[in-house]
Amino acid sequence: MSLREAFAAGRFAVTAEIGPPRGADPDAITRKAELLRGWVDAANVTDNQGAHVRMSSFAGSLLAMRAGVEPVMQLTCRDRNRIALQSDLLSAGALGIPNVLLLSGDHPRFGDHPDAAPVFDLDSTQLVWTARTLRDQGFLVSGREVGTRPGWLVGAVENPFAPPRSFRARRLAKKVAAGAEFCQTQYVFDVEVFASWMARLRDLGVTERCKVLAGVGPIRSLRVMEFLRTGVPGIHVPDEVERRLRGVPGDRVADEGVTMCVETIQRVAAIPGVAGVHVMAFGYERGVPEILERAGVGRRPALSSSRSEGLGHAG
């Protein structure tokens, strides 16, 4: 079963995240993939997340595929101009990577090379547009035709919690007009704000054309909570979450965080138009099956053998 098939079948979809290592060890990907295999429809392979140098999302996606986990290859506008972006999109198509997720990317300011040139030749909406034109019309941005067209599913991201909030549903609508077929959101800790954003998406007709996966994840320590609050741009941790985590003894914070994540999954799953969840559990991939099981989201149907060899690309 693949992400595309889960969407087509209308089954509650689950994606997770695999962050490639700072190093050339392929087993770092394989180990994480093995923890997730069978529990997710696909796993994002991040693209130099937080503007920190890592193994590429392209190589990581191939390694994940080899380990039996369908990848969602992330591709950011931060490090590549339109030539490199389109080349990577074609390469992903050639090697059967079934999904791409296109985003602006964190600014180099936040990474380990703040002295690097930020590229941002295209923005994320333009990249989505470029990808859909490439796949469906067979044209590059230049207007030149391509030979064999790639076949990946086109994903985008949105942050329902960041200002200007009134514009956030329309911003996703623009990406969907440009061609996004699924969307993963920033961490949902404030379900009410998320629900009103979803209502707006339904009004705009976005949920009819785009599968929306709510971003979730456990906060397993007060240190991580502080980091999410202050160290990562665009994450909204409401006071109620803080009160709950501070309200339990220190040795129970991790459990409480996991419980809150389980509750969040159950609450977002009940919102009309939510097609699934995107579980972000950095360094806690081993806990993903437990979170899903407790939330009542079962194992995934078995992967077809061709897909586990990385050849099952529907094109």
Binding site: C77, R78, S104, D106, H107, R109, F110, P118, F120, D123, S124, T125, Q126, V157, E158, N159, F161, A162, P163, P164, F167, R170, R171, K174, Q186, P233, G234, H236
Partner: peptide, 27 residues
């Protein structure tokens, strides 16, 4: 915009509406 985004804001705008790259300035 430090990312020169022409189709709308990035996801990193702070809760008070400031730019993620220049936190002293409004997005």
């Amino acid at each position: 915009c430090p990312k020169q985004l022409r189709n709308g804001p990035c996801g990193g705008v702070s809760p008070t509406g400031t730019c993620e790259v220049h936190p002293e300035l409004t997005c």
